[in-house]
Amino acid sequence: MQIFTCPFCGPRDEREFHFAAEAGKTRPDTTRQIDPETWATYLHAQRNDKGRTREVWMHLPCSELFLMERDSVTMEVFSTHPLRKEPQ
């Protein structure tokens, strides 16, 4: 059972977390023409990297959405950052 560090709450048991998405995808501007391939890639293409990954996770108790860099083989967690800028 892993320990993830919520950028706000600190270290917590993995059961409090939910995988949301692979990081790095941007929603295409749907007010413009989008060819089917671009949209299909946005919807379905996953890198599923072996090794170092960048992912978006949610800490369910506080709903924080954050970026987590981790190793999908060793399960080592390198860093977590809020998806948005930390308030000043």
Binding site: H18, A20, R27, V56, M58, L60, S63, E64, L65, L83, R84, P87
Partner: peptide, 15 residues
């Protein structure tokens, strides 16, 4: 609720 929170923080201004 989770669906809304995810869109709120990803692609919108959560403030």
């Amino acid at each position: 609720r989770t669906h809304l929170e995810a869109w709120r923080q990803d692609g919108n201004d959560p403030d």
